Each structure stands twice: as C-alpha cells, then as structure tokens.
Amino acid sequence: MAVTAVDFDDLPAPVRTAIETETGPILKTETVSAGLNSALSARIHTTAGAVFLKGLRTEHRWVWTQQREADINPYVTPLAPRLLFRVVADGWDILGFEAIDGHHADYSPGSADLPKVTEGMRRLGEIPCPDIELRQAEQRLAGYVDNLADAELFKGDALLHTDWNNHNVLITDDHTHLVDWGWATRGAAWLDPAHWIIWLIAAGHTPAQAEELAARLPAWGTAPAESVDAFAKATSKLWAEIAGNSPDNWPAPLLSAATLWLGHRLS
C-alpha cells in the first residue's frame, strides 16, 4: 500500500481541530516533502512555537509504526525530538514532535557532518534496548538469507534505528538528532553501521571508504566477517525487492550501492 502525501489542510476538520486543541492556535502550516513513510509530514507554527507532524491513515498497513514511535520516544530523547502529543481521530493517527531547526546530514566524502553522524550513532549505541515490543533483526532479514540459520547471525540485544536515510539525521550546531523511529529494531549492535554503509556508498564513498567510516564505531569491531558477508548478501536482496516494488526510481542508487558493497565483500 503506497503512501499518498497530503497537506495539513487536506486533513478532515475534526482531525485539524483535535491537533489545534493540543497546540493552541495554528498560525501557519508548511508541508515537508522529505520522508517516504508518512502521508502527512508537516511543520505547523503556533503561538507557542513550531511543531512537526507526521501521520498515517488508520487503515494503512504501516500505521503500527506510529505506535512504535510513541512507545520508543521516552527512551531515545534527547537523541530524538521529544513527542509532544498523539491524536487518533476520524481515520487518522498523528504524532506531534518538537520541531528541530537543523539540516539533513550530508553523507558525501569529506563532509563535515560525518563525524557528527558517527557521534550520534555512538550515543545511540549507549542506550539500552528498552523492554518494549520491537522488530527483531533476525526476523526482518530472514527472507533474504541464503540459509535460514544465517539470520541468527543478526540476533542481538542492541537498540537499532536501521533507517539511515540522511533525511532521518538532522544536524544542528551542537547536536545530531535521529528521527523516524518506526522501524526501530532489536539486534546485533554492528547492524546500524552496516545499514549506514549502503547510504555512504550511495553518497559517493567507495565500499572500502564506507567501511573505514563504520570502523570508527565501537560496535563495528564486534562484527564477525562472516556475519557482515551474510548481511551484505541479504541487504542486496532486500534493496532489489524494494526497487522492484517501487513505483519510482528512488531506490536505484541504494540497490547499486548494495550490489557494489556485496562485490567488495565477496572479493
């Protein structure tokens, strides 16, 4: 089920009223184009300040990610923006977060953002995985391994973000913020750096350069080579599936990156 984007003004009147009950008078609204997992992605300005809204229709197959974000938020702030409220009304599930005035991380070679991203990932690695319902890495990747037993290589007790799209990493002057926690997962600690490698290669790094950046994170040193090889194979199949099911070509650079990394691992 595709996500069809809507503007704030397209929401049913009862939903807009319920949001304004939480925020106070809304003075201005802005649609935010970045993001693939939300039908509503908007910044609203109120007398008390700005609020970021993200939402899905309650019948959407991904609406469970709204609950996941609400559940995990108390454990990941201030690394993540604080959840201010949740509104479920008239067929919509809306989360309201404190708005962050930052820029999307630049993953390109030589970017000044790269050390800040690694620091944010290191801080995430220090957060204990909360005892809440989360996806399991070995289950998420089980359909993409050569042998089902290989999925056990991804098992662990670390809290993982897993979606390292640079639009999910906001950089301010003194902080790195991670947003979009709907796909938070419990698994091996090295998996977040491994997921990041794909995005780094897509941004222009060679596979060797991307692995060197990942190696700056303590978690990467815990990864057995055979486990990384199994992940590289699995994630190349995953991105092939995403690219095959996508109505546009946004996954193409990620599929190319995953294929390039797999070739590097196999060589």
Rank of each mutant, 00 (worst) to 15 (best):
N165S: 10
W199D: 14
N166I: 01
I197N: 05
W190M: 00
D174V: 09
L160S: 03
L178H: 07
Q209I: 00
N166E: 05
W164A: 06
T206R: 00
N166C: 11
A202Y: 09
L191T: 04
T206I: 03
H177T: 11
A189P: 11
I201K: 13
T162S: 15
A189Q: 11
L170G: 01
A208T: 09
L170S: 04
H205K: 02
N165C: 04
D174G: 07
V169W: 01
W190I: 08
A202D: 08
W199A: 15
H175C: 06
L191C: 09
W181C: 07
G187W: 05
N166P: 15
T162Y: 03
T172G: 11
T206G: 12
W199C: 13
A202N: 08
L178S: 03
I198S: 14
W164Q: 10
A184K: 01
W164G: 12
W183K: 07
T172C: 02
H175A: 15
R186I: 06
G182P: 11
I171V: 10
H175R: 15
G182R: 05
W199Y: 13
W183S: 15
G204D: 15
T206A: 00
A203C: 05
H205E: 09
I197G: 01
A189V: 11
A194Y: 01
T185V: 06
W183I: 06
G204Y: 08
W164S: 12
A189I: 08
L160M: 10
A208C: 03
H195W: 10
H205W: 01
L200R: 02
W196E: 07
L160Y: 01
A202G: 14
G187A: 08
H177N: 11
D173K: 11
L200V: 05
I171Q: 10
A208D: 14
A210G: 11
T176P: 00
G187V: 03
A203M: 04
L191S: 12
D173M: 06
T176Y: 04
L170E: 02
Q209C: 00
A188F: 07
L160F: 05
A189G: 14
A208P: 02
H167M: 05
L200K: 07
L178R: 09
D174Y: 05
W196Q: 01
I197W: 03
P193G: 12
H205Y: 02
I197P: 05
T185S: 04
W181K: 05
A208W: 09
H195V: 10
D174L: 06
H195M: 14
I198R: 14
Q209E: 15
D174F: 07
Q209K: 09
L159P: 08
T172H: 02
A184H: 11
A208R: 14
P193L: 11
T176M: 13
A188P: 04
L191H: 13
I171K: 10
L191E: 11
W190Y: 12
H175E: 13
A210Y: 00
W181F: 06
A194F: 07
D174S: 13
A203K: 08
N166Y: 08
A210W: 02
G204T: 08
A194S: 14
Q209G: 12
H195F: 15
I171S: 04
I201L: 10
W196P: 05
D180V: 06
A203Y: 07
A194Q: 13
A210V: 10
W183D: 14
L170R: 02
P207Q: 00
A194K: 13
A202V: 04
L159I: 02
A188I: 10
T176C: 08
